[in-house]
């Protein structure tokens, strides 16, 4: 088909069909609104009424719980493929570069009045950084941990410079990205987070076997003609998705914790790899939900509370295993 033919075909379409994608988006966001308003609010309000925990009926707390619920799943799910390859620092690196993405979005907003949602900026930059790390490790002589350290600090440096360029005008909003916050998770954030969570879960389910093979025995996987580079790229991109979705609550600095701590917590208890994935998700959920609850009740930093609960869980499990 020539370009002209394509144009004629396009013109022949009913006008409304051109906007069909828009309707799909509207339908999805409408569905999501309904889900938040009716399902989530309904369930939480019921729990609030039964338990007498009033804060469960506040919409912003519901959004916070929904967020940590997603993070508790995708963090350990992706982290399981990082920890056993000594790639735990990848999460931290991508989170720090995601901060540069936030800064870029805020910078564009402040200087050019160009509205880019900060999380979208974070996602784009984190995915780019994931690819840069790959290239650095593969095509230069840089050791992978040195490459990670360079990208980590480079990303954070870029972020801090961009912020200073705006004369401090945008630094007001920066703290919540650095340390995380319960109160500022918007409806759009939760929407993005839930959809990124779905992408990650689907991605891991589909690519489970290549991911597992490469994690366990990279050389044998290469000998069996598994495309190790493609698998590594996929893993980096999934990691970028996870850190960006968790950033709002956990903060850039602490976001990597949920990729790592639940995984090492259950590492000795898992009967099989699949079993350990489920246990890791369970540990992530406990840490996330308990952490958010404690943060609310005592007015603590959310990310810090979640990480400390997760580490507490790790210590408890190790002591329990030793006592057995």
């Amino acid at each position: 088909m020539t370009g002209f033919d394509a144009l004629t075909a396009l013109a022949a379409l009913p006008f409304s069909d051109l906007f069909a994608p828009l309707f799909v988006v509207n339908t999805i966001s409408g569905l999501f609104d309904w889900f938040l308003r009716v399902v989530v609010d309904g369930v939480f309000s019921w729990v609030a009424a039964v338990t007498g925990l009033q804060f469960l009926s506040y919409p912003y707390m519901q959004r916070a719980y929904l967020s940590v619920f997603c993070i508790g799943i995708v963090g350990p799910l992706v982290g399981s493929f990082l920890v056993y390859r000594d790639l735990s620092m990848v999460g931290d690196t991508l989170a720090h570069t995601a901060f540069a993405g936030v800064a870029v979005a805020l910078f564009l907003d402040a200087t050019l009045a160009l509205t880019v949602p900060p999380l979208v900026g974070a996602l784009v930059v984190a995915v780019l950084a994931a690819l840069v790390v790959q290239v650095l490790v593969e095509y230069t002589d840089a050791r992978s941990d040195a490459a990670l350290a360079m990208v980590l600090t480079g990303g954070f440096a870029l972020g801090s410079v961009l912020i200073s360029l705006t004369g401090g005008g945008i630094s007001v909003g920066i703290n919540q990205y650095l340390f995380g916050s319960l109160a500022t998770v918007s409806r759009a954030d939760v929407g993005l987070l839930v959809s990124m969570g779905l992408v990650v879960v689907v991605g891991v389910s589909v690519a489970y076997r290549p991911l597992l093979f490469v994690t366990f025995d990279e050389t044998a996987a290469r000998a069996s003609r598994v495309h190790v580079r493609a698998v590594n790229t996929l893993l980096s991109i999934l990691t970028a998705f996870v850190v960006v979705s968790a950033m709002r609550i956990m903060g850039v600095i602490l976001v990597a914790a949920l990729l790592v701590i639940p995984v090492v917590t259950v590492s000795r208890a898992g009967r099989s790899y699949k079993h350990s994935l489920w246990l890791g998700i369970f540990a992530g959920e406990i840490a996330g939900i308990a952490g958010v609850t404690l943060a609310y009740l005592y007015g603590l930093a959310a990310g810090g509370s979640i990480v400390l609960v997760a580490i507490g869980g790790f210590v408890a499990v190790q002591l329990g295993l030793r006592a057995r």
């Binding site: 076997r209 597992l212 994690t215 366990f216 898992g270 099989s272 350990s276």
Partner: peptide
């Protein structure tokens, strides 16, 4: 990796089939 990673014998042997059923 083999010592630390929680993975069963069957899970490892199954990897032999991965090139055919990835």
């Amino acid at each position: 990796t083999a010592r630390d990673m929680p993975i069963t014998v069957r899970e490892v042997v199954r990897m032999g089939r991965y090139p055919r059923s990835l």
